[in-house]
């Protein structure tokens, strides 16, 4: 007897396979429905609630939220003290993003181009390991490192470089009594904490640039600097943008690091935390929370206009 041309169905699994084969969209909707529901209801829903809250205002005498549409709360953002918070947060986020990008690039470049086998594993471990330990532990460790009695001061003394340290600390605006109570300290800790989020997307982007592309550039007469500017950098741009979205938005939303390390001047995250907690001013907290979203949208629009995603 010869084997049949069509094999019999072996029960439910085969019947389901047949159903999905005839109607490919059924499987897709089954797979997508739960996460889309989650995203739609929990995430977008709460975002919508937040937006709604930001258009309410608070009664200055009774402290009760008035549920009427108004732009008064947004107008409050433009008060000098609130503008300061926004400006300070944006400047810090931009500085941290730039710092992360400058430090991450050589590391990501090495990992993408040269690291092989075991060294690649060492790279991933080295980048990921700090992510596995507690955020608070890392921040407090940095507070100790940067403190006036900390290892940096000690090392500077031992190397007779106290002059340099003091010179850095006396820079007006970003200096301070010690590293742990200055803007420089806040910046350093932010850069350390968010660095992996810059390295990994950058490395992924650089890995996708075939080495023949770099060879073609050199072959056509380009110096290393020209190859970097005209080939490597534009092709790595989507990765740099992806990394900068992480570092920028994470810095803008963080409210713990500025409390522990730095001048304890307020950032957006801390303002939101205090306004919705102790102050009970939910509308202003909501309006503050909208600021990073708007800034990110502006940032991405500008990046797209400048052709950052052309190589995607």
């Amino acid at each position: 007897m010869t084997a049949p041309a069509v094999l019999p169905a072996r029960g439910l699994a085969d019947r389901l396979t047949a159903l999905f084969w005839r109607h490919p969209r059924v499987l897709l909707s089954l797979l997508l429905a739960p996460p889309l529901l989650w995203l739609g209801v929990v995430y977008l829903g709460s975002l919508a609630a937040l937006l709604l809250q930001s258009f309410y205002s608070i009664d200055e005498f009774s402290g009760v939220v008035k549920e009427e549409f108004t732009l008064k709360t947004y107008a409050e953002l433009f008060r000098a003290q609130n503008l300061d918070i926004i400006l300070r947060t944006v400047l810090m986020s931009a500085a941290v993003t730039l710092g992360c990008a400058l430090i991450a690039f050589p590391i990501a470049y090495y990992a993408a181009r040269f690291a092989k086998g075991r060294w690649k594993a060492v790279f991933y471990l080295g980048v990921m390991l700090p992510l596995w330990s507690s955020y608070l532990v890392k921040v407090y460790a940095w507070k100790l490192i940067l403190a006036k009695e900390g290892i940096i001061t000690w090392a500077a003394d031992a190397l007779h470089l106290s002059m340099v340290l003091n010179a850095i600390l006396s820079i007006p605006g970003i200096g301070g009594n010690s590293l742990s109570t200055s803007w420089i300290g806040t910046f350093l800790v932010f850069v350390y904490i968010w660095l992996p989020y810059m390295i990994l997307p950058m490395q992924a982007a650089l890995e996708r640039v075939p080495s023949s592309m770099l060879e073609a550039s050199a072959d056509l007469g380009a110096s290393r600097a020209q190859t970097f500017r005209t080939v490597v950098f534009p092709l790595a741009m989507p990765g740099i943008i992806a990394g900068s979205i992480f570092t920028f938005s994470l810095t803008m939303g963080d409210y713990i690091i500025p409390q522990i390390v730095g001048t304890s001047a307020r950032f957006i995250g801390l303002a939101v935390y205090q306004l919705q907690g102790t102050a009970g001013n939910i509308p202003l907290a909501a309006a503050f929370a909208v600021v990073p979203i708007v800034i990110m949208l502006v940032y991405l629009t500008v990046a797209k206009r400048m052709g950052a995603f052309d190589a995607l």
Partner: peptide, 18 residues
């Protein structure tokens, strides 16, 4: 390579996609 007056047509063409 950039100072050799020699040019290459690469196997994968290596055109710059951007």
């Amino acid at each position: 390579p950039n100072r050799r007056n020699v040019n290459t047509v690469f196997q994968d063409y290596a055109l710059f996609p951007h």
